[in-house]
Computed example of a mutant assay.
Amino acid sequence: MNDRTVVYSTYYNPMEANIIKAKLEDSGFACFLADENVATLNPLYNQAIGGVKLIVFERDVEAINALLIEDNSLNFDPSEEIIDEEKSGDDKTVCARCGSTNVGYGMATNKKYSIWAIIIAFLTLSTPIKANKCHHCYDCGYEFE
C-alpha cells in the first residue's frame, strides 16, 4: 500500500485552504494543511514560505481531482464578484498605449508621491503619507489617469 504524501496544492489565503480541506474531509479523504499557522499569524511571511500547502495521500489524488472538478461551488472567486459589482456593463478601462483591458487601479509606481508630500516628509523627517493613484496596464506597464 502506498502511504506517501504529496503537496496537492498551495493557497495564499488560509481561509480558502481550510474550505478545500473541509470539503475533502467531509468526503472521507485524509488531509492536512502545512504552514497554516505561520500564514495566519504573520501574513507577510506567506509569500516567503510558499503559501499554505494542502497535503494528501498520493493514492487519493485522482479521486480528489474528480471530486473537485465535479464540485462547481469551489470555482467561486469573490474578487470577480466585487469587480462585477463595481463595473456594471462593459465600461472597462482600456490602456491608451496598447489597447489592452488588463488594467488595474491602484498606487502609482513611477510617480508615487507628489512634490508636496516629499517636501513635507523631508521637513518632518518622516516618510511621505499621501501616495498618488492611477491606472496601470499589466501588459505594457503604462500608467495613466
Rank of each mutant, 00 (worst) to 15 (best):
M1T: 13
M1D: 13
D3C: 11
D3K: 14
T5Y: 04
V6W: 06
V7I: 15
Y8A: 06
Y8C: 06
S9I: 03
T10P: 03
Y11L: 06
Y11Q: 05
Y12D: 12
Y12Q: 13
Y12A: 11
N13I: 10
P14Y: 05
M15K: 14
M15P: 10
A17T: 01
I20A: 11
I20L: 13
A22C: 07
A22S: 12
K23V: 11
K23H: 11
L24R: 01
L24H: 04
D26C: 15
G28P: 07
A30I: 06
A30Q: 09
C31P: 01
L33N: 04
D35V: 10
E36I: 08
V38L: 11
A39N: 08
A39H: 05
T40V: 14
T40H: 06
P43Y: 05
L44M: 11
Y45T: 00
Y45K: 06
Y45G: 02
Y45L: 10
N46T: 03
A48C: 03
G50K: 05
G50A: 01
G51C: 05
G51K: 01
K53W: 05
K53T: 01
L54D: 08
I55K: 08
I55V: 15
V56C: 06
F57H: 00
F57Q: 02
E58G: 00
E58S: 02
E58I: 02
E58C: 00
R59M: 07
V61P: 06
A63L: 07
I64P: 12
L67R: 13
L67H: 14
I69Q: 15
N72C: 14
S73V: 11
L74I: 09
N75C: 12
P78N: 02
E80A: 10
I82M: 03
I83L: 06
I83R: 01
G89C: 05
G89A: 04
D90F: 01
D91V: 00
T93S: 11
T93C: 11
V94C: 08
V94P: 05
C95S: 08
R97L: 12
R97H: 11
R97C: 12
C98F: 04
C98H: 02
C98G: 07
S100E: 04
T101K: 14
N102C: 12
V103W: 06
G104C: 07
M107I: 15
T109M: 15
T109D: 15
N110D: 14
N110A: 13
K111D: 05
K111V: 02
K111H: 03
W116H: 10
A117M: 03
A117Y: 03
I118H: 10
I119W: 05
A121M: 12
L123T: 00
L125S: 13
L125K: 14
L125R: 12
T127M: 14
T127R: 15
I129N: 15
I129W: 15
K133F: 15
C134S: 11
C137D: 00
Y138E: 09
Y138H: 09
D139P: 06
C140H: 01
Y142K: 02
F144G: 05
